[in-house]
Structures are given as structure tokens and as C-alpha cells.
């Protein structure tokens, strides 16, 4: 692999020496050196993070790549990377739960959950509906308090933090709620701009630019002045996804980002997730039922079953697992050890 030609502060995970996105596209043969230099020269900023963020779009606008080819390239590169990156042993966990128990309405929803989310990786949480996946996610951001057990975020015990510290930690995490949770009283633009306006010092001009780009990325361009109740469920979900990504957080938690969407949009969202990951190396946790699809590009998989972690490991390991419960999830059999409620 080639090394970056300019100093780079792009977050690269341990074990990744592919360099920034432009370099990787070059190495994989999607563009040539001259095209890359042209695209780099066209950048108006010197911030390497920003360049990494924009380079794909610049290449497209210069006509060196088509948008679909760019997306395909990203997913291909990413899938390949995931395959080469099955050993997760050296990756430190950024989020972890230990012995977490939670009773809701007299039912043990979480019954001793132990899990670790590796940093700079995409982790998928799979499991039956009603199995406590959303509840797990809410525990990770401190929206629910465990009856027993500890939750660590970046080495800090989430429930030992003061309110102010908790707020500071939360500004680095964003959560896409299963129901979207857009604010009814704000239009799509203001909804997506909301976290930027409320928690950062970003100027209105930049907010406008970033929100428009985000809308474009989730294929909602032109919908910015609509209100959430004027959008379909899928559009709501995509707007909420844009809101979750807009602050470029360190950790992104996505609760069923593609549930209820058509296959084309589902694919587009998967591409967006891969694309975001390739550019920023953000730690992501994704709850999804799109089982064959997400296995193409997730590093790590956690199977939740009956309030416990049934299995947790690299994607190939889970895919090859012979555990009948896991097999049933992967193959989608109706008959098997999993009770269908």
C-alpha cells in the first residue's frame, strides 16, 4: 500500500495503513495519480480531515468517477479491508457493558449482558425483535439506568459521571433512534442543523453547507422545508440518520437504520454507512436485521439472545458458527431453538 503524500491527521485504526481515502482509491486503481493530484489541488481547505471528507465528491464533480462507481469502490475497498481485519484482539473497546441487568415492567429484558464495542470498527448487534437490542443501546448512552452492572464509555463509568460530564461525553456520541425521533415542530433542515446549532459554535453559513451536503447524502435534497409529519417513514428515518451523522461524532449508534425501507434505499444507506466509516473511521454500532447484507461490511458481530450475549466475535467467525441459535438467525429458519413470540 502507498503511504500518504502529505502529513495526515486522519484517524487510522491500528492495523490500517491504507492512508487517506484518495490514496486508497489510487491504490485500488479507481483513479490515477494525475486525477488524484487534480482533486487535491481543487480543495479549498488544508485540513486533512476535511480533504478526506470531500475528496470523493471532488473526484465525482471533476468527472473522474461516477457517483455509483465511487460508492461501489468504497464498499469494495471496505469489504476487502474487513476481510483482512478479522483479528480484533488488539482493538481496545471504547464502550463496554459488564453484567448489566435490567427489569422492565416485571420482565428481565437484560439478564447479565457483557459486551465490548471495539474502537474504530463497525459492530453489528443482531437478535430477535423484542430481545432487548434497543434497550441495550439506550443503556450505552445513559438513557436507561441498569439495575445491576457497569457501563464504561471511553474508560469512564457512565453512571459515576456528573451531569455536566455526562453531557460532555454524550456530545461525542450520536444515536439514531428506532423511531427517528425528529422534532415535530422543526422542519427537516432545522432538525438536521439542531445538534450543530445547540452544541457547537458552527457558523450559519457552514451549517447551511453541511446540512445541504448531508441531505444530499441521504437522498433528501429538496425536502429541507418539509416537516417530519409530511414525510414517509423511510424519509423520516433518513433525515434522522443525517442528523445523527452531522456532528461527526466519535461514536455512532444506529438502531435499525434500514428497517422498513425499500431495497434500493437500504443499499444506499449501507453505502452511506461504509462511506462515512471509510472517511472518518468512526466507531459504529448498528442494530440491523439485514443479515446477509451487513455481514459484508461489519467487522464485529454481537448476537443478543434471551437477555444475554449469545456470541460475539469477528464477522467470519459468527458467520461460520455452528451454534444452532446463531444459525437460525443467519438462515432465517422458522423452526429452531429460538422462540418466536
Amino acid at each position: 500500500m502507498s503511504t500518504p503524500s502529505q502529513p495526515s491527521t486522519v484517524i487510522t485504526a491500528p492495523g490500517h495503513n491504507h492512508g487517506p481515502l484518495g490514496q486508497r482509491l489510487l491504490a485500488a486503481g479507481y483513479i490515477n495519480e494525475q486525477q488524484l493530484n487534480e482533486a487535491l489541488a481543487a480543495q479549498s481547505t488544508v485540513d486533512p480531515n476535511e480533504i478526506n471528507h470531500l475528496i470523493g465528491r471532488t473526484l465525482v464533480s471533476l468527472g473522474h468517477l461516477t457517483p455509483s462507481l465511487l460508492r461501489q469502490a468504497l464498499v469494495e475497498l471496505f469489504t476487502e479491508e474487513c476481510r483482512n481485519d478479522c483479528g480484533l484482539s488488539g482493538v481496545p473497546p471504547i464502550l463496554s457493558m459488564k453484567g448489566v441487568e435490567k427489569q422492565l415492567d416485571g420482565r428481565m429484558v437484560l439478564n447479565g449482558v457483557d459486551l465490548e464495542i471495539p474502537e474504530h470498527r463497525i459492530t453489528a448487534i443482531i437478535g430477535i425483535s423484542g430481545g432487548g437490542k434497543s434497550v441495550t443501546l439506550k443503556h450505552l448512552v445513559g438513557l436507561m439506568r441498569p439495575d445491576r452492572g457497569t457501563i464504561m464509555v471511553k474508560g469512564k463509568n457512565l453512571y459515576a459521571l456528573s451531569v455536566a460530564e455526562l453531557q460532555r461525553v454524550r456530545r461525542h456520541i450520536s444515536l439514531l433512534f428506532q423511531g427517528g425521533a425528529l422534532f415535530d415542530s422543526l422542519n427537516v433542515f432545522d432538525n438536521i442543523a439542531f445538534p450543530l446549532r445547540e452544541t457547537t459554535q458552527t457558523s450559519e453559513a457552514e451549517i447551511h453547507q453541511r446540512v445541504m451536503r448531508a441531505l444530499d447524502e441521504v437522498n433528501l435534497a429538496g425536502m429541507e422545508y418539509k416537516f417530519p409529519d409530511e414525510l414517509s417513514g423511510g424519509m423520516n428515518k433518513r433525515a434522522a440518520l443525517a442528523r445523527a451523522l452531522i456532528t461527526r461524532p466519535e461514536i455512532i449508534l444506529l438502531d435499525e437504520p434500514t428497517a422498513g425501507l425499500d431495497p434500493i434505499i437500504e443499499n444506499a444507506i449501507h453505502h452511506l454507512i461504509c462511506d462515512t466509516f471509510m472517511r472518518t473511521r468512526t466507531t459504529m454500532v448498528i442494530i440491523s436485521h439485514a443479515i446477509p447484507a451487513i455481514f459484508n461490511w461489519c467487522h464485529h458481530v454481537i448476537v443478543l439472545h434471551r437477555g444475554k450475549v449469545r456470541a460475539s466475535g469477528s464477522t467470519p467467525a459468527i458467520r461460520e458458527s455452528q451454534d444452532p441459535v446463531i444459525r437460525q438467525f443467519i438462515d432465517g429458519d422458522v423452526d429452531g431453538p429460538v422462540d418466536i413470540l
Binding site: K138, Q167, F177, F183, D184, E198, T199
Partner: peptide, 22 residues
């Protein structure tokens, strides 16, 4: 109440915007 049941209050909290203040 609707903001609560549609998780919008939770969303505020997760974004680090204190819901009571907002």
C-alpha cells in the same frame, strides 16, 4: 407528552441538550 413517547426528549438528552433547560 408526545415528545416523550416519541423519544424526542430522549433525543435531546442524548445530544447533550438538557431537556429541562430546552
Amino acid at each position: 407528552g408526545i415528545m416523550r413517547i416519541r423519544e424526542q426528549i430522549d433525543a435531546l438528552e442524548v445530544m447533550g441538550v438538557p431537556p429541562i433547560h430546552f
